[in-house]
Amino acid sequence: MKSIFSFLGLGAFLFLVACQHTPTSVKNRFLFLGKALEDAFSRPLRVTDETVILDVRSAFQFSLSHVDGSFHIDLREFNEKRSLGGPLKKDLSMPARHLARLGIGLKTPVVVVGNGLNGQGREGRLAWTLLYMGLRNVQTVDIEALHLKRVSYPSLPRKVQPLWEPQNQPAWELRSWKSFIEKASSFKSKRLTVIDVRTSKEFFKGSKKLRHLPIKLLHIEWTEFFTEKGRPSLEIKNRLKSVGIHEGDPLVLISNKGVRSAAATYVLLVLGYGNAMNFSPGYESLKK
């Protein structure tokens, strides 16, 4: 597949920055990569022969039409209870093997396509998962905004990558209500900021369990974290700054099942908010 855009891609930014800095933690690396990543997201998406396109739409949608050369992937294979959301598996070695068979290594540029703002954030959930596993060049886009050849037949296999071990980042996920309570209670002088990314209707229903916690609760719908093309929105930084939130602040994002909140967490991570965390069980777990 030939490049369809002439602009410098995300991978080049990562390479240039990495060459100029000494090694540091993954969390801090995202903080100083923020400006370069912002520039990449402000330019048209670049797809090259090295790019692997993953499609997280339903298997039925994929069978009807998909980008030539793309692969369908089921979010459930990454999750503990084989559901679309919820906590990730503690051992992600088998999903990593699957990715390697699809031609994906830790340095492979990946584009995740889905239904964009008309969906439920699946592509963002997968992008967050891939970042969590150690991949760094991961972008999202609405499939309707990716003007590449569409087909209905299966894609040809790519060159298999050597097996690799996931480099999990547990600091980016809160897996239980207990861990949520511990995180909220760990702040003395400043309250933990929790961002509810559900719809306004869902938000105003509220959750009794959250009302009594020492947290700062905000509502920003998950769609505000993305552009109409399904790419990370740079405007979200201005929105957060207007309510006193900065790149280094600890943030917890929450939705019903940890899918939309994972999508929003992905955006914050790649824009330099290295202390963003997804409450992966979601509100649904609080009803039990």
Rank of each mutant, 00 (worst) to 15 (best):
S6M: 08
F7Q: 13
L8I: 13
A12V: 13
A12K: 14
C19L: 15
H21V: 09
T22S: 14
K27I: 10
K27E: 12
N28I: 03
L33D: 03
D39R: 14
P44A: 05
L45Y: 00
V47E: 06
E50Q: 15
E50K: 15
T51Y: 07
T51A: 05
D55M: 05
V56D: 02
A59S: 13
F60E: 15
V67I: 15
D68Y: 05
E77H: 10
F78P: 02
K81V: 03
R82K: 13
R82C: 11
G86N: 10
L88N: 04
K89I: 00
K89F: 03
K89G: 07
D91T: 08
M94Y: 14
L99D: 00
R101F: 04
R101A: 11
L102I: 04
G103A: 06
G103N: 08
L106K: 15
K107Y: 08
G114H: 09
G116I: 05
L117G: 07
R122W: 05
R122A: 12
E123K: 04
E123V: 01
G124I: 05
W128V: 00
M133A: 06
G134F: 01
L135W: 00
L135K: 01
L135E: 01
R136G: 00
V138G: 02
Q139C: 10
T140Q: 07
T140W: 01
V141R: 09
I143C: 09
E144C: 06
A145M: 02
A145W: 01
A145S: 15
L146K: 06
H147K: 12
H147L: 11
K149N: 12
Y153A: 09
S155Y: 03
S155C: 06
L156K: 15
P166L: 01
Q167I: 01
N168Q: 14
Q169I: 04
P170V: 10
K178T: 11
K183I: 03
S185H: 10
S186G: 07
S186R: 12
S186L: 08
F187N: 11
F187P: 00
K188Q: 13
K190H: 14
L192H: 05
L192R: 04
T193I: 10
V194E: 03
I195V: 12
D196F: 06
K201L: 12
E202N: 12
F204N: 13
F204T: 12
K205S: 11
G206E: 09
K208F: 10
L210A: 05
P214E: 03
P214K: 06
I215R: 07
I215E: 04
L218T: 03
H219N: 14
I220Y: 09
G230D: 04
P232E: 02
E235R: 13
E235L: 11
V243T: 10
V243N: 06
D249P: 11
P250Q: 07
V252Y: 08
L253N: 02
L253D: 06
L253C: 09
S255Q: 01
K257V: 09
G258F: 02
V259D: 00
S261E: 05
A264M: 01
A264H: 00
A276R: 04
N278S: 06
P281A: 07
G282P: 06
Y283R: 10
E284K: 11
L286W: 15
